[in-house]
Design a protein around this nucleic acid. Structure first.
Lengths: 141, 141
DNA sequence: CAACTTCTATAAGTACGTGATACGAATTGG
DNA sequence: CCAATTCGTATCACGTACTTATAGAAGTTG
């Protein structure tokens, strides 16, 4: 009989992730963009121009929601649209330079906030979290 | 000179937490309550009855937002209000049995979803995450 | 007890999501 | 080769979840 699997309690991890997330959120700039907007921008940054419906599916929202989100992001200069030369129905959404810069600023702000929180964390705990980080990244791949 | 501190990159942790959180969110029931509603209910469950403004501050929303949230939660039977015998201005918000049951169902659903995700994670990674879990809980205390 | 402060509620506006539906562009079968 | 269908996006009507500004009742205080 093989050894029992590691005792990682999904419910505990779920709650912990939610609470850390809330903590991080507290330190947000006052007029932060929405979760979906941020996630969509990050996706556009990572993967390049994408279709509306593709984004909607990937982000788990409906197509009308993505249409509206892109409209707002376009209005704020964070993204723009381009026609697909190969298919006249398609809209390709792209992140703009301002969008990338916003993501960059957002990362700095959050990093600073988290760094402040980490002051109260023991070196041991910090090391444990650092050790688990690559695993968390693979989980959320 | 003491050893250099562990190299935990706040920006990386922030992004990883956001992405794990998004993953967990994907597997939500279709008509899930809002982040703030869930967090507020959990707080009421943990800490017992609380005032409106106390909840608003703790959750990082404005007082009118909390008034409205409590109204909605009350309408759905998840929470109720009681007068404070010591101060006629105060409303004490309490979680109801239905509220507790909702939290419990929500935890099961999310745990099941996360458990499904963990199938694709190596034993080593799972062990690393399990080892870091108490540290994450202390961070989010 | 009049003036101030505290606590909650209301009002008006915006962002963000939904389902239903419209409509032009692409694909397809007879 | 064109009528029917499917695909990709937009629009509409609606509900929720926030914001700021303000009102108003209950406590506190000089």
């Amino acid at each position: 009989m093989p050894a029992a699997r590691t005792a990682l309690d999904p419910a505990r991890l779920t709650v912990a992730v939610e609470r850390v997330f809330s903590l991080l959120r507290q330190g947000n700039p006052p007029n932060d963009i929405s979760l979906t907007a941020a996630s969509t921008l990050r996706r556009l940054e990572r993967e390049g121009p994408r279709r509306l419906t593709e984004l909607a599916t990937a982000e788990g929202v409906t197509q009308p929601a993505m249409t509206q989100l892109v409209q707002r992001m376009e209005r704020e200069g964070l993204a723009d649209r381009a026609a697909d030369p190969a298919d006249g129905r398609v809209v390709l959404v792209r992140i703009t330079r301002a969008g990338s810069e916003l993501l960059e600023r957002r990362r700095s702000v959050r990093a600073a906030h988290l760094a402040a929180l980490l002051v109260d964390v023991s070196d041991d705990d910090e090391a444990l979290i650092a050790a688990a980080l690559p695993a968390l990244e693979r989980l959320a791949k």
